[in-house]
């Protein structure tokens, strides 16, 4: 694989774009198709691509399995936590109006939960990818 310089360079060049695209998809979800879930998938795909090209170990150095596992859990906590926060602020669960006056509350809330989705989906997808890929390497 070491000879395939083009692939390596290509991946290196591509990856930031994919990540940027992912973030675009995430933050532009309000106006066009997309949102946390799709962004998480794309983000995970970027790292999967890097892993395919540079090998699992290299990517796992940048993005340790423990970290992505934590991401998977963290996203759920963010999402459910926002609900708890609104509840503490005197509204019902996930009642975003508690977060700020006017429509801003809804916007903050949606942004927050989408972030939760992003984090979890990213974490889960990378974890699952690591596990399958890792399993394959060890059986060979």
């Amino acid at each position: 694989m070491r000879e395939e310089v083009i692939v390596r360079v290509g991946a290196k060049v591509l990856a930031p774009f994919i990540i940027t695209f992912a973030l675009y998809v995430h933050f532009h979800g309000d106006y066009s198709p997309g949102g946390g879930f799709q962004a998480g998938v794309i983000l995970a795909a970027a790292f999967a691509l890097l892993a395919l090209v540079y090998g699992l170990d290299a990517v796992q150095k940048v993005l340790p399995p423990r970290f992505v596992r934590a991401c998977a859990a963290l996203g759920v906590i963010i999402y459910a936590g926002i609900g708890v926060v609104t509840m503490v602020l005197g509204h019902n669960y996930l009642g975003y109006d508690a977060l700020a006056e006017g429509h801003a509350g809804q916007h903050y809330g949606i942004l927050g939960v989408e972030l939760g989705v992003l984090v979890t989906v990213f974490g889960v997808m990378v974890t699952v990818f690591y596990l399958f890929a890792g399993r394959g390497r060890r059986t060979q």
Binding site: A70, A73, V76, I77, G81, V84, Y93
Partner: peptide, 13 residues
């Protein structure tokens, strides 16, 4: 529902 739901991800830490 939320109590066990929040406890579950905490287990991973």
């Amino acid at each position: 529902v939320v109590v066990p739901l929040l406890a579950a991800p905490l287990c991973l830490f």
